[in-house]
Design a binder for these strands. Structure first.
Lengths: 210, 210
DNA sequence: TAGCACCTCCCGCAAATAGGGTAGGCCCGC
DNA sequence: GCGGGCCTACCCTATTTGCGGGAGGTGCTA
């Protein structure tokens, strides 16, 4: 098995100590760099000693992990980044994945998941904590149980038109309705979805709320 | 550890034999139902012997796994479904996840991943083959090389505002600019993104184009 | 039969948005 | 120094949207 080089950015000194001890026991993983701030990583890292994997905290003094991620991926596209954080809300997850993270572990999960996760990501996988992967999947579910069920069939068709980026007039053409009727449906959709503009509706849809 | 009840729908008789043998060796997993067609599953299954997990092939005679998935999830929302298929293209994956699958294994992966995957999904995880999870993550990376790079920093900030569902006025507040300036940036964003409305922009963003 | 939900169409008005142009200031590189 | 890109701000107009209402028809059901 290949040796996997690893860097860690974590500002909790106690946790760093634990991580050092843990990875010291993993024969196939070598911890080559530890820092408390991403800025240190960005400055001191050069191509020569680029690690294969980075375990990156989000809540950091100075630049946050998520903020640093685009810079890191821009500079070192091959670097595999696993977010390692207490945040498990969909917003943080979504943002991290959009910025190029290929793994996401919550700090609540047991320590012995770290080694497998590092190996997994090095092999081209995408390790995620259970709850995280479920939330990621949730993003693909346009209509689990949420508001959409409240919509009448016609309203759902109109909603689909909005989601497809159509104007009221275009929707009216698609559904062969009067524009005025479409506008009525749109109003009802807004009320049921508790938004007050097309943009908000799309924005929520983007976040997987709808 | 709890006993996990499992059903399998698979039309390859040889593979079924292998699966039977494999799961017989897993003390915590009991294979309670095997069928070659989903129709059989839909007919013969009732609440009494509802398994916890279903391993579901996609390429099946009659109703395909993906087609059956909405029906199954509609009837048995608590049923955890792992797709088990040769298809590893993003279209099949995306469709399965949208229909409510909570796991996706490719048939190429080694047999001994099946047990852990079944346990994982029963614990609320979302097991996926390596290549699959990477492709899923790819869905979140809308900006590898695309248009966004063409945008100036200010324009990207304005775009972010639009994506967040803000109006021009709200964006101008957030960025401390004149509404008119925001409008100028918005126009530039539209031109560069080749759209001609906020809705279209959001809609494209939704599709991962931007 | 009398609600009730849904679909359809309409009016009017205020606001937001799209698309076009102009223009000064700033900074950078040729 | 000069063009060019960027940020800023403003002008115009036309269209679209948001929001308040009304109104007739259908079909289901209590």
């Amino acid at each position: 098995m290949d040796l996997i080089t690893l860097a860690v950015v974590e500002d909790d000194a106690v946790l760093v100590k634990v991580l050092r001890a843990y990875f010291a026991q993993q024969p196939d993983i070598r911890l080559v760099f530890v820092a408390a701030r991403v800025e240190d990583l960005l400055e001191e890292l050069d191509e020569g000693l680029l690690p294969r994997v980075l375990l990156l905290d989000i809540g950091l003094p100075g630049l946050s992990g998520t903020e640093a991620l685009p810079l890191l991926k821009d500079k070192y596209p091959a670097l595999e980044v696993i977010m390692f954080t207490a945040y498990d809300d969909i917003e943080h997850i979504y943002q991290a994945l959009c910025c190029g993270a290929t793994g996401y572990l919550t700090k609540g999960s047991p320590l012995d998941q770290l080694g497998p996760a590092v190996r997994e990501v090095a092999r081209g996988g995408a390790p995620m904590s259970r709850a995280v992967s479920r939330k990621v999947l949730g993003h693909f579910r346009p209509t689990p149980t949420t508001h959409t069920a409240l919509l009448t069939p016609r309203e759902q068709q109109v909603l689909q038109g909005i989601v497809d980026g159509l104007s009221d007039k275009e929707i009216s053409t698609r559904l062969d309705l009067s524009t005025l009727t479409v506008r009525t449906h749109v109003k009802h959709v807004y009320r049921k979805m508790q938004v007050n503009s097309r943009t908000q509706l799309l924005s929520q849809h983007l976040r997987g709320v709808i």
